[in-house]
Amino acid sequence: MTDAGGDGKHVIEVEGLKTQFGDFVVHEDLDLNVERGEILGVVGGSGTGKSVLMRAIIGLKRPSAGAVRIFGEDYYQASDKDREAIEERWGVLFQGGALFSSLTVAQNVMAPLKEHLNLPEELVRDIAALKISMSGLPEEAGAKYPSELSGGMKKRAGLARALALDPEIVFLDEPTAGLDPIGAAKFDELIVNLKESLGLTVFMVTHDLDTLHATCDRVAVLAEKRVMACGPLEEVRKTDHPWIQEYFSGPRGRAALAHKASEGMS
């Protein structure tokens, strides 16, 4: 399902990005490309601006310099209409799910459908049920309010809403943070599964080494205000940068690697 726009290979192109809060510069001269159909994991220490980068790409934090091109279109220069067209083609999962608390899960999923598409109510309900089920939530969850859900269920519900419009790109902000290891592994599996069957491009901010190993095609490491390394995990791990070395070769990094290796053998 390739679509017109851009050269078709890079769905997101970030060029010379500079973001700042007052005098505090978060990113400077940052370049990053996301290829169609890949899962890109963005890692970095606390405060390196992973979430800020995501917010800059999805239009919530206006960069002070540089360009963000989505499907070949400069998001911050685009007209309102073009911008809305882009927004229909992406879905975002915020860290806590960011579900609307006054709506049930199903109504949350239906909200973007009702806003953007002119479909009969019955079909919208069916679509909501489909997305909720695809996100791995039980049927009963549809009629529940966000306050009645556990953290993991909230993330799944948030993912269902992010997938409502059949987006081409999905942004995930720390999808497995706060989940127990079993829930996190299931969520990883779900993301890979959906990416394969729906042909999604996934931009994922994460801290979780296991998630990186389990899901990501490429990894981008943020440090010193820019992308220090970007590529398949094996390559990035070899990069000679103290933070990268410590991150991937520390005890947790090695454990995740060993786990991956033992899985590969069995």
Partner: peptide, 10 residues
């Protein structure tokens, strides 16, 4: 496998 309808409201 995801065709079952679900309730929208309590």
């Amino acid at each position: 496998s995801h065709l079952d309808p679900c309730h929208v409201e309590p």
